[in-house]
Design a protein around this nucleic acid. Sequence first.
DNA 1: ATCGGTAATGCATACGCATACAGTTGCCTC
DNA 2: GAGGCAACTGTATGCGTATGCATTACCGAT
Lengths: 331, 331
Amino acid sequence: MITSKDVARLAGVSQPTVSRALNDHPKVSAATKQKVREAARALGYAPSAVGRALSTGRTTRVGLVVTDLDNQFYSYVIAPMHDELGRLGHELVLVTEADETGPIAERLISLGLAGVVLATTTVDSILPARLQDRGMPFVYFNRVAGVEADAVVVDPSAGVEALARAVADAGHKRAAAIFGPHNTSTGEERERAMRAALEEVGISLSQRDVVHGPFDFESGRRGAHELLGRDGAPSLLICANDLVALGALNAAAELDIDVPGRVSIIGFDDLPPSRWALVQLSTVAYDLEAMSREAARLIVSRVQGDRGAPARRVAFGTTWVPRATVGPSPR
Amino acid sequence: MITSKDVARLAGVSQPTVSRALNDHPKVSAATKQKVREAARALGYAPSAVGRALSTGRTTRVGLVVTDLDNQFYSYVIAPMHDELGRLGHELVLVTEADETGPIAERLISLGLAGVVLATTTVDSILPARLQDRGMPFVYFNRVAGVEADAVVVDPSAGVEALARAVADAGHKRAAAIFGPHNTSTGEERERAMRAALEEVGISLSQRDVVHGPFDFESGRRGAHELLGRDGAPSLLICANDLVALGALNAAAELDIDVPGRVSIIGFDDLPPSRWALVQLSTVAYDLEAMSREAARLIVSRVQGDRGAPARRVAFGTTWVPRATVGPSPR
DNA sequence: ATCGGTAATGCATACGCATACAGTTGCCTC
DNA sequence: GAGGCAACTGTATGCGTATGCATTACCGAT
């Protein structure tokens, strides 16, 4: 390994001078900087992030904490977040932990992360409190929990209300729903917003026609098989997110149920597959890419100093995007 | 920050004893280990990966180098690779670099990565040679380049040959194709295998009916618009991978071309969306998850010592998976 | 010519951990 | 009862970088 000491020897200066020269310290002469830079280039010197981290007590690594990394939702989060972090001189480290009660806080500290983005916090997780105790900066992404902290969230109301009006106008009277888990703020909030909006427009949602499950394809597939398999099923199926809706759409195809002829299906997120011509899922959209980038910016600004600043909350609005999976209520 | 020195003070031992105790060094008495462990727990001590890395000259971070992180193919790679790395006590750091001629080798060294998985190497990339010069262990994933090194690859032949026989039996005589980029080993190899297999069964592939493009959805969409828009287009469209095929399928939907009534479409990879009831893409399958895990195991074993061992090459076989997008040739 | 001052650089050290090596026990053996 | 050995544990040090402080050199001013 090539160290700053090697560069120093070649440039004929001391090691600290190399450090200062390469970090563009103002009290190093231009001539020396030039000399050092040339020596560094000649040797192909790359400063060790490890040495720097130990010396400064800080790293440039940001952790993205996700429990279900195989959920495709995150593929649309990771790319922009990683890109924005890179732009800001930071790296992305993926961290999963099935069990948030375990020693994950210790693990995050141990990894030498500068800060953390929590993307799958459940409301009963003790992780936020632990992180706060330890002084580890963090940002909630999409979901929030008890502890006050920076957060990037979605405000479902606008999109959901527009959706409700649209389906009411299309003549739907009874809805079914596959909602998200109760222990996530996102699940609860969307469910609350949706129930309120449906009630507002006079669409009924019987307890018999509601199931809950994780935010994934299989949950949608299973839920739809259960809800749509029966006789006299509602004409409208509302899903916790797009992946659930895609699962439901596929279940409908498996059951040979016409969409939107017999049932209309609605998602939430507007992931790219929803826009496919083959799919054309009606959904509630928001700017997930911008949201991912915003989370990156928030955690970096938090890491770089303003530890004491009050918690910021950035909310992204939603819009209703009607596509081919919604139609008039049959009969 | 809580350090081993704090633990040492509380436990009434020296710092090195803490280090040895927690690393289960054989020459530390059981009583001392117990005492140290209790002190560590009481303080919530988490060993600093940074300090350890500096001291041992090694980290547990593995980089996954990808140019187009937003390509959904990688979402199906990242989850299992991350999981397997975690199992082996390592972390995954994502690294992208649009320009592989830049100082990326230096960056990889600088980041303090123990090893690297190259997932989007082009055959003309200088990165592998650079890494080899620097003594940075790496593994080719899916694609390979000039420098000899560990590699995890797909052998397309079995699946492609079965595919060719199947479509010949279905009466197809003329094919079109959207192949991958010429500067990727994967693109070239699949094209070669496919051309050979088609020739073997007497299906023609006119130069007019071939386009090349990146391995993504848009490439398939664009290519299909070009190839299928014309009169007298072939009855069979072969795509470089599933994402390309999904793009092509969607283009067909946009053009109102019946699949497989007027054209049969074939992919390569068997990504989960291909299995959706809505999609049912006929494709050449291999075990991408196992492949991702294998890459993780290879790089870790390389990092943990056997630097000198000869390069290993693990090839995954393919099978032909006929689904709904392939049918008999019209007329 | 001497001195103060400033700009530039070197010296010493710290960060947290691991490890070679040097002690310190205590116990066994003869 | 003395020497020796095993079993532990402490001391010293190094990893690569950054930074406070001391030092040098050189300038201008008196």
